[in-house]
Amino acid sequence: MKVTTANYGDAIVVRAAGRIDQSSAGEFQKKLTDLVDMAIGSEKQIVVDLSKVDYISSVGLRALMVANKQAKPKGVTIRIASMQEVVREVFSISHFDKVFPTFEEMPKALQAVSALAAAAYTDED
């Protein structure tokens, strides 16, 4: 699993790639919680781009939930975008789709953050 980040206006985009499971969830969680701290400090929002993630296990989802618990009380929303079909199914089976706002495409997730974030994203891609 690999995690990269990018900033678009007031959105911090987290791009994960590969499998988020037992072997990588710890690293994923550390990265997420650091980014949530950053988002809280800079009044930004988080969008997690899962387009390159082939699979997420229960520990991977748990990592997202840990980050969400840290983010939500401070006004930071974690949005999930571009899930592959299998990952989308896992989100539905786990009911994580009831906890996290999910978006089919990145531009829509960024629009939900702000017009500024959406514009910055469009300019770059």
Binding site: S58, R62, V66, I93, S94, H95, F96, K98
Partner: peptide, 23 residues
């Protein structure tokens, strides 16, 4: 519980989810 409940609202209530069972 569902995994979402077991990791949020009902975390530390002492029960598991179907997904963890399968894994």
């Amino acid at each position: 519980y569902s995994l979402a409940d077991a990791t949020s609202l009902k975390e530390d209530w002492g029960h598991s989810s179907n997904m963890v069972a399968v894994e």
